[in-house]
Write a protein that binds this DNA or RNA. Structure first.
Length: 874
DNA sequence: GTGTACACGC
DNA sequence: GACGTACGTGTACACG
């Protein structure tokens, strides 16, 4: 039995376009409609498994219907250029899938579909029609079913004759009569004014067709209705005429030619790669093909590492599959270079003198994927690794920080190199992750190394194009090593200090708990917002201010507003605060003290944030409490690792606003920093137009919040929330800020233009962030992109600067032979441990290096402090 | 295991 | 006029 699937091409493309955000690829080409169309096509082919298939498109602007009614489809919004430019590519997609498509001068896609479905029906074929247009429902018959695409792209509604009767109470053919009476605004079919769907259906149920209705006008009740029908006789007839799909379109096409053929997977994957359809690509990842490439990858399993195998440059794979590489074992090592491909067991590599010498030799170049992982893992085995000049992970991140996966297999795949499987495919995932037998392991590592080795040139070419080669080679690559050393070094914590604070917190929590139960009238889980909500807002009848998806919001800002309304509130706030301290900072930190070093070894992620900042995990040492004294005491547990040493902390003062002053080249802001003024006071003076002595604490607080907003790119809404004012007041604040600093205003406008023009913004050191939503039709997405455009160069440049300072300081420590060690970075702050005899030197050296890292048109300023614990370094 | 609410830092 | 609004990480809860 033959089955023909007919797709309404324009209608589906239209649906796809509006259902999906305006995605574009690296080349700035819009692909959302192509992507959505392709997804639907694949799903339809999979669901229906048709023997024959065709996509019909509308041709040209005019059709035979315009002869009947020149206004047909007029008043319709022009197809957006973002969509029309995608239509040719949709045809390319159909080409590679070997799906035939057709358009016919003077006819609409509907007519083609109507004609072919009629022919197929006469041959006793089954027909399925996919469309987003209800007009086609008139074609439904026992053999012809229509799938109507509802909202989204995968949600369809299947219509057979019964379904039509159920939905409309009509036979399929009467759909045209319905249109004749009610019209169709999207096609500019007039119908009878004053008659909508309800009335049309009522009339048709009684009389059956437009003609019958018109014949029976006398019987119809209601004077107005009679008049309307009488006056619009011809219009109703014409409207029905227009709505009828023409089923004898001259097509010169044989049904048998529409056979659904097999397609060439390679053609499909090549096109998907070009379009950057990663998700779809995964579906077509042909394992056999990858295996074939691998078969050519001969390698040697080396037990005795020879000097001449380790030429420069080489790709080096140090395989540590455990997410946390501080505890993970090295499963194996691979080296790939022009002399060959080598798999070396971890033991053999670590014991080999030739390997050790090569690893630490700065002059022998290595390429890796995730340098820091290799550096730290080898560091735990007392093996030093230097001379890494290329890291695929970091490079990929610099080229586009937004890509969702920086795994070596994905990067390779994106660059058309299908030689490497995912770790998950080879090792299994989650609890099932196991070390495979040696051959499989060796092959996987060789493939990874091969990808790194082969991609290096192409990737650096791209970096060069982006003017990012210096950022890569001189900043991020050296930084990787510095971070590796910091992580391996770790920071010492006083376990008993943490435990003491923990015990005290436990006691206070127990008391608070009792008190809260008493005030609530019963026991419940205080940590559960789901339980707390009903207690506060139903049992205690407090006014609910905000709701979340799942119930009442009980967040701190909500509770803060209720503080005076019930004595339970202050206790809850305190309970939350202390509970957070205990679980995250006491128990959390105790859990991650390394058993053998007694220190905490965080992991800095160098390839995650969109702005260029670092992040810190397991544990996150970039969010240790400081603002409230209660939490700040946690810092007392962070101590030097050697007795008699000190913790020294140096932080940039207002680095983002200084960067802004420089980038925007704003006189007012520059003046503030050149004269070393308190920036919030200065802002208050400028915004409120008062003298220094007239600045009240409230004015300064507002100014500070505005500065904060500038630095973090918050919206007027965000500012209104933080200051507890209305959105309009916040908006006025921002406006008067920008009036006070006109060049900041100019910068904000210029950078947005730049982002719209280029599709991305950059920092001083050429870090890049793409902003595809700058032209989004969605207000929120667009606004967010605009704030990001303004904010990223500021925050990102600040990140550039402190990263460079870290490399500079680290180099200086080495050159000067100082024993002091850099331990942590917290966005604008560096934390060291320092022997007593170096305290004075470091107090001079560190801020000096930080201030001279980069020359701006305003001075950079770094403050330094030191003491026996991190708490005291304030 | 996954999603949501909340809270910490910058 | 509504939309739902800096980022990243971690914990606890509550769902399957």
């Amino acid at each position: 039995m033959s089955k023909l699937v007919l797709l309404d091409g324009n209608s589906i493309a239209y649906r796809a376009f509006f259902a999906l955000p305006l995605l574009n690829n690296d080349k700035g080409v819009y692909t959302n409609a192509i992507y959505g169309f392709t997804t639907m096509l694949l799903k339809i082919l999979e669901d229906e498994d048709p023997s024959h298939v065709l996509v019909a498109f509308d041709a040209g602007k005019t059709t035979f219907r315009h002869d009947t009614y020149s206004e047909y489809k007029s008043g319709r919004e022009k197809t957006p250029s973002e969509l029309s430019e995608q239509l040719p590519v949709i045809r390319e997609v159909l080409d590679v899938f070997k799906v035939p498509y057709i358009e016919k001068e003077n006819y609409e896609a509907d007519d083609i579909i109507g004609t072919l479905s009629k022919q197929a029906e006469e041959e006793n074929w089954d027909v399925r029609i996919y469309t987003g247009d209800r007009d086609l429902l008139q074609l439904v018959s026992p053999r012809v079913h229509v799938s109507f695409i509802k909202k989204g792209i995968t949600n369809t509604e299947l219509y057979d004759p019964d379904a039509i009767r159920e939905r409309y109470g009509l036979d399929p053919l009467q759909i045209t009569d319905m249109k004749g009476l009610m019209g169709d605004s999207s096609d500019n079919i007039p119908g009878v004014p004053g008659i909508g769907e309800k009335t049309a259906l009522k009339l048709l149920k009684e009389y059956g067709s437009v003609d019958k209705v018109l014949e029976s006008i006398d019987e119809i009740s209601g004077k107005k209705m009679k008049e309307r029908l009488e006056e619009n006789r011809e219009q109703a007839k014409m409207s029905k005429e227009l709505a009828i799909i023409y089923r004898n379109t001259p097509l010169d096409l044989e049904l048998s030619k529409l056979k659904h053929e097999d397609y060439d997977v390679k053609e499909v994957t090549d096109l998907f790669r070009e379009l950057e359809f990663q998700t779809l690509l995964n579906k077509f990842d042909d394992v056999d093909e990858a295996q074939q490439i691998f078969d050519e990858l001969a390698y040697k399993h080396v037990t005795d590492v020879q000097e001449d195998m380790l030429v420069s440059p080489s790709a080096l794979v140090v395989e540590v599959p455990e997410e946390n590489y501080h505890h993970g074992s090295i499963w194996g090592i691979a080296v790939i270079n022009e002399t060959g491909r080598y798999f070396i067991s971890t033991e053999n590599a670590l014991q080999s003198e030739a390997f050790q010498a090569w690893a630490k030799d700065e002059s022998r170049e290595k390429y890796t994927f995730d340098t820091k992982r290799a550096v730290v893992a080898l560091g735990w085995n007392d093996l030093e690794l230097r001379g890494i000049t290329h890291d695929t992970l970091i490079a990929s991140y610099l080229i586009d920080p937004s890509v969702s996966s920086h795994h070596v297999s994905d990067i390779a795949k994106r660059r058309n190199l299908q030689v490497v499987d995912t770790d998950e495919a080879v090792y299994g995932k989650g609890a099932k992750r196991t070390k495979p037998e040696e051959k499989a392991l060796a092959e996987h590592l060789i493939r990874k190394g091969e990808a790194v080795y082969r991609l290096q040139g192409k990737i650096e070419e791209d970096l060069k194009q982006n003017e990012q080669l210096e950022l890569f080679k001189e900043l991020e690559m050296p930084l990787s090593l510095v971070l590796g050393q910091m992580e391996t070094q770790g920071i010492c914590v006083d376990r008993s200090q943490l435990e003491t604070i923990g015990d005290e917190l436990d006691g206070r929590l127990a008391e608070l708990e009792k008190e809260i139960y008493k005030q609530a009238g019963r026991e419940f889980n205080i940590n559960s917002p789901k339980q707390l909500g009903p207690i506060l807002f139903e049992e205690l009848e407090l006014p609910a201010v905000k709701k979340t998806k799942t119930g009442y919001s009980t967040s701190a800002d909500v509770l803060e507003k209720l503080r005076d309304q019930h004595e339970i509130i202050p206790n809850l706030l305190l309970y939350r605060q202390i509970s957070k301290l205990r679980s995250t900072y006491i128990e959390g930190l105790l859990k991650v003290i390394h058993p053998s070093t007694g220190k905490i070894h965080t992991m800095f992620n160098q390839a995650i944030t969109q702005t260029g900042r670092l992040s810190s995990t397991e544990p996150n040492l970039q969010n240790i409490p400081i603002r409230l004294e209660e939490g700040r005491r946690i810092r007392k547990a962070f101590i030097p690792s050697e007795s008699g040493w000190s913790i020294l902390s140096a932080d940039y003062s207002q680095i983002e606003l200084r960067v802004l002053a420089h980038i925007a080249d704003d006189e007012g802001l520059k003046e503030a920093f050149q004269n070393n003024m308190d920036i919030h006071t200065k802002t208050a003076m400028d915004v409120f137009g008062v003298g220094q002595d007239e600045v009240t604490s409230n004015m300064r607080r507002s100014a500070k919040a505005v500065n904060f907003g500038i630095v973090y790119g918050i919206s007027d809404y965000g500012l209104s929330q933080s200051l507890g004012i209305t959105r309009n007041e916040a908006k006025e604040f921002i406006e008067s800020y920008l009036k006070s600093y006109p060049n900041v205003q100019n910068y904000m406008n210029d950078i947005k233009d730049e982002a719209r023009r280029d599709g991305f913004v950059t920092t001083l050191l050429h870090r890049r962030r793409y902003l595809p939503d700058m032209n989004s039709r969605n207000f929120n997405q667009r606004s967010f992109a605009e704030r990001t455009a303004m904010n990223t160069p500021i925050q990102g440049t600040a990140a550039d600067i402190i990263k460079k300072a870290m490399v500079d300081v680290s180099k200086a420590l080495e050159e000067k032979g100082l024993a002091s060690r850099l331990l942590l970075q917290v966005h604008d702050e560096l934390i060291f441990e320092v022997p007593q005899n170096e305290v004075e030197i470091m107090q001079e050296l560190v801020p000096e290096l930080m201030e001279q890292t980069i020359e701006l048109s305003v001075p950079l300023k770094a403050d330094v402090a030191q003491g026996p614990t991190w708490y005291d370094a304030k």
